[in-house]
């Protein structure tokens, strides 16, 4: 049991999310963490459900998806080792915005977000430390989404080409 706790602690310490956290704050997180191994194809959570946990990937890969009736799960982003999966637990109304599908057998730290949310509320310093980190994750994802939106690798002449071909 002690061994498992030590493993948990070391996994947590290695996560970029925990970088720079104080010892006390780490202890709070550790108290809310447990390890999960989830097989490929399973879902961590589904859109619309209550966000009472979040995950830090130790190994494996998880995809964020939105389901589209006639096109299946549309992939938005994939997350890998070190990444945080799930940020809706700090953002009202605390409901998942996406589906999280395990793409490769994964080892995860599952964090009890319901408790963490309460700790954030009563301990603003801890709350700030959490928000700071979630904001970082959100900023990275927003940057990425914006770059994806720009379609940087798209062919700038594509539209014109199609038009020209049609005229023929």
């Amino acid at each position: 049991m002690a061994d498992t706790l030590e493993n948990l602690k070391s996994d947590l310490l290695q996560a970029p999310f925990c970088e720079g956290l104080s010892k006390e704050h780490l202890e709070i997180l550790l108290g809310c963490a447990h390890e999960e191994r989830i097989l490929k194809g399973r879902f961590l959570f589904h859109e619309g459900a209550t966000a009472d946990e979040f995950y830090i990937i130790v190994s494996g890969r998880v995809g964020l998806e939105l389901d589209c009736p006639n096109r299946g799960g549309l992939g938005i982003q994939t997350c890998g080792a070190g990444d945080v999966v799930g940020t809706s637990w700090v953002i009202a109304p605390f409901l998942w915005r996406f589906d999280a599908k395990v793409l490769e057998d994964s080892r995860l730290l599952s964090m009890d977000a319901a408790i963490l949310r309460e700790r954030c509320r009563v301990d603003p310093v801890f709350g700030y430390a959490m928000l700071e980190r979630i904001a970082q994750v959100k900023a990275e994802r927003l940057d990425a989404a914006r770059l994806q939106l720009l379609d940087l690798y798209g062919n700038p002449e594509e539209g014109k080409h199609v038009a020209r071909t049609r005229i023929k």
Partner: peptide, 23 residues
């Protein structure tokens, strides 16, 4: 390898290349 837009049979990475650098 990562792609900006996945497809139904794509099991690889989706996201920008900076995400790959981060990991």
């Amino acid at each position: 390898v990562t792609v900006d837009r996945g497809e139904r049979d794509w099991n690889g990475e989706i996201g920008v290349v900076t995400g790959l650098i981060r990991r």
